[in-house]
Structures are given as structure tokens and as C-alpha cells.
């Protein structure tokens, strides 16, 4: 594919950004021929296969109801909450482990695969308690450990400077964008390997959106990020890879630059250039 692709040289900064984490590029999520149904019969995802690589941002795009959010929620088994929903075919391997194996504890899985939701949902607790929540339910009570984790997570989420003087204030008193970054800090605090984001900016104004996007680009150095977005410009801005879904099928997955300059599938082109319907 690289022959036909627009000549693209990675800036040096991008190549060195994965500093402390493992070298960017090995596969951390393998989705292998996965089908999924909410009711055991009607498949809303059909035979999807893809690899998600370490320290990359992978964007899922596609029209509503194409299965992108469903697939995202398969990755940390949030779909388990729906009793009849189940994977009907294939395997999802994260860090080389089939996450639907009976030996996998879903609680442990979710510690490794964090999630940020569409509607920012901080708890009606203080900023501090919001960030410390994940650690507290793991039974960590040591104040020094919690203090450090809270500070580091808020710094990583780019919120520390804005809230360091009012950690005891309610998380709900923050602006929408700050609340979403608080939710990201809360997720980071548990130190996951992978962060799933389900349309994290859809409820935010453009400036807050820019801040979150900037944050995503920074977080890439330490986490592998999968983001579902309706906003294609957002996908072009933040993601390395883009996967286009339509009617439950993965139509095309490729470098984002390639998808948005010269996709190989007609359907992808029609969707991203606004020719659907």
C-alpha cells in the first residue's frame, strides 16, 4: 500500500514519542473474525478482523448503527451488562489473551482496558475522590499513594493546573470539558494499558474538543487508544489508523492519511466525502 500512498515522512518527534513504553507497533488488540449479537440471533457485527497496535490512536468511524460502539464495548466486555448479548463468532485477544476465555476475570480486564464515555460522567464527589475512585475500590487506602496517583493522573490529563487548589470541590462544578478530562484522569489513575473512548467530545464545545484532542495526542505516548467518533475531522486530527464500519462490517482499515486521501473502497470514499443517503 505504501507505494500508492501519498509520500509521507513521519516527523522525528512522532518516532521518538513512545519513549518509556514498549516500542510502538506491536499488536496489542487482535480482533479475529468477530461477530456479535445482542439477542443471540441478529448479528450487529459481522466477521470483523483487525489489529490495533501499541501506542497508536485507532479511530472507528461509520454511520450510526454500524457497530463501531458495540465493537468498542466488546473490548472491555461492557456488553456483558446486557444479559443476552454475546460474541457469536471469533476471538478478541488483548495482550495475547482471549478476553472471552472463562479464565479471564472481567474485573482485571477492565483495569487494563479503561473507558471514557460519550457523556462525561464524573461522580457527584470531590475532584480528588473521583480520581481516587478506581484505586479505592481496589482497596488502596494509603493516603500518600492516593495523593500521588491523583496528582499524576490530573497532570497527565492536563487538569492539574486548573484544579490543584480545589481538589475537594465537587467534580460536577467543573465545565464540560474539564469534567471529561476529569473522567480521563479517573481512567488513567488505574493505569490501564488501553483506553477506549466512546465519542468523548460529542457533548463538548469546539475549544474543549481541541483540548481533549490535544490530550489524546499526548496520551498516545503511554497508552494505546481506540476512539469512536462521529466527527471525521476529529479522526483525521488525532488518529494514526482509521477503521470504517458499515452495517456491522469492517469495510476498510488503514493509515488515517490514506483513508482520507485515497481510500481503497468506494463505500469508504462515499461516507467520508458525504455522499451517503
Amino acid at each position: 500500500m505504501s507505494e500508492t500512498q501519498m509520500d509521507k515522512t513521519l516527523p522525528a518527534s512522532e518516532q521518538t514519542s513512545g519513549s518509556e513504553a514498549a516500542p510502538r507497533g506491536d499488536v496489542v488488540i487482535e480482533i479475529d473474525d468477530v461477530s456479535f449479537a445482542y439477542d443471540g440471533k441478529k448479528e450487529v457485527i459481522r466477521n470483523v478482523s483487525m489489529d490495533v497496535r501499541r501506542n497508536e490512536v485507532t479511530a472507528f468511524i461509520g454511520p450510526s448503527g454500524c457497530g463501531k460502539t458495540t465493537l468498542l464495548r466488546c473490548l472491555n466486555r461492557m456488553n456483558d451488562l446486557i444479559p443476552t448479548a454475546a460474541i457469536t463468532n471469533g476471538e478478541i485477544r488483548i495482550l495475547d489473551t482471549n478476553i472471552y476465555d472463562p479464565a479471564v476475570d472481567v474485573i482485571e480486564l477492565r483495569k487494563h482496558v479503561g473507558m471514557v464515555f460519550q457523556k462525561y460522567n464524573p461522580f457527584p464527589k470531590s475532584i480528588y475522590e473521583n480520581v481516587a475512585y478506581g484505586l479505592r475500590i481496589q482497596g488502596i487506602r494509603n493516603k500518600a499513594v492516593l495523593d500521588q496517583a491523583v496528582e499524576e493522573s490530573l497532570i497527565a490529563a492536563g487538569l492539574w493546573e486548573e484544579v490543584k487548589d480545589r481538589l475537594d470541590a465537587s467534580g460536577l462544578g467543573l465545565s464540560g470539558g474539564q469534567q471529561q478530562r476529569l473522567c480521563i484522569a479517573r481512567t488513567i489513575a488505574v493505569q490501564p494499558k488501553i483506553i477506549l473512548m466512546d465519542e468523548p467530545c460529542s457533548a463538548l464545545d469546539p475549544i474543549s474538543t481541541t483540548k481533549i484532542e490535544d490530550l489524546i495526542t499526548q496520551l498516545k505516548a503511554h497508552f494505546t487508544i481506540v476512539i469512536v467518533t462521529h466527527n471525521m475531522q476529529q479522526a483525521t486530527r488525532v488518529s494514526d489508523k482509521t477503521a470504517f464500519f458499515y452495517l456491522g462490517e469492517l469495510i476498510e482499515m488503514d493509515e488515517t492519511t490514506r483513508i482520507f486521501t485515497n481510500p481503497s473502497k468506494r463505500q469508504t470514499e462515499d461516507y467520508i466525502s458525504g455522499r451517503f443517503g
Partner: peptide, 12 residues
């Protein structure tokens, strides 16, 4: 969202 956020953070 509260339940989901909590579960996603590894709560039982």
C-alpha cells in the same frame, strides 16, 4: 453512566 464508569474502572 455512574454504573458504567464504575464498572469500567474495575469495580465489581
Amino acid at each position: 453512566g455512574f454504573r458504567e464508569a464504575s464498572l469500567a474502572l474495575g469495580a465489581t
